[in-house]
């Protein structure tokens, strides 16, 4: 397996390449416009890999995505969970679907809370073992913190819950789905450090493990979903600048020119 994390420091954002040296193919997860589609094309080519799939954990509200452009450039699918309320077409998947790149399996774990379509990706390198090795947790679980539940724009039709209910969903999702994974599994989030997608306890460290977060993630030490929701609200950072605009662009409701540089 070839596994690479790309860090875009201005927004404390992490995107990923998961590939197989034998198949010479790779998936890109959560690509960001700040780095740009050409960046991922050249990084993959440097590793001798062709991009055959572009995935997103969810429709982002704090940064401009380049997933559509990257998929189009490579003539490959742009994958999102079937709940994603975009105005443009994408290739949808369901909870439990498995995508394979050479000897690597990527299993979709539906992890709603931050958004109604949020999905984490469980990575298994079958050239080493049938046990999963890592999970890309998007904006569900961060290192030291959790994704905030109050950045929804434009997808109210699907989301019947209020902010508090979404926070409670986030709690049960993390407890019942992510913390049910083997404890050795490494955690790779979509954000770290100062990112505004989580709270004040987000670590600058760019990876963790299920064991460590289960034991030391402050929000997840709360006794129940209600206490968790209150803690998340109390420790939230300010809302990201222009998040409504950014989310609207990522949903396909705005053209790129209308962004006027927001979220890049």
């Amino acid at each position: 397996m070839i596994f690479k994390q790309f860090r875009y420091e201005p927004l404390n954002q992490a995107s990923y390449l998961v590939g197989c040296p034998k198949a010479k193919e790779a998936f890109i997860i959560d690509p960001i416009e700040g780095l740009g589609a050409d960046f991922y094309v050249l990084e993959a080519a440097d590793l001798g890999l062709a991009i055959t799939g572009v995935f997103e954990t969810h429709v982002h509200a704090d940064y401009v995505s380049c997933a559509r452009e990257l998929a189009e450039m490579n003539g490959c699918p742009h994958y999102l969970h079937e709940n994603a309320p975009t105005t443009y077409p994408y290739t949808s998947f369901k909870d439990g679907d498995v995508f394979t790149v050479g000897q690597v399996d990527m299993t979709c774990l539906f992890t709603p809370g931050h958004t109604p379509e949020h999905t984490s990706y469980l990575i298994t390198d079958k050239s080493r073992s049938d046990e999963p090795w890592a999970v890309l947790t998007g904006d569900c679980l961060f290192v030291g913190d959790v994704g905030r539940p109050d950045l929804l724009v434009g997808d109210q039709a699907l989301d019947v819950m209020d902010e508090g209910e979404r926070a409670q969903t986030q709690f049960t999702t993390i407890r019942d789905i992510l913390f049910a994974l083997p404890e050795h599994v490494e955690v790779y989030p979509n954000h770290y450090g100062g990112s505004l997608c989580g709270g004040v306890n987000m670590s600058g460290k760019n990876s963790s493990t299920i064991y460590y977060e289960n034991k030391y993630n402050l929000a997840m030490q709360k006794a129940d979903a209600a206490e968790f929701a209150e803690f998340v609200r109390d420790t939230a950072k300010p809302l990201p600048d222009d998040y409504e605009k950014i989310k609207s662009y990522n949903l396909g409701l705005l053209e790129k020119e209308e962004l006027k540089g927001a979220g890049v």
């Binding site: 010479k24 080519a45 440097d46 590793l47 062709a50």
Partner: peptide
């Protein structure tokens, strides 16, 4: 990469895999 080249390429082309 080699597999797409083998599958289909411009007549006369030489395969030189890219990296920077």
């Amino acid at each position: 990469t080699p597999h797409p080249f083998a599958a289909e390429h411009l007549e006369g082309a030489l395969s030189v895999q890219f990296n920077r």
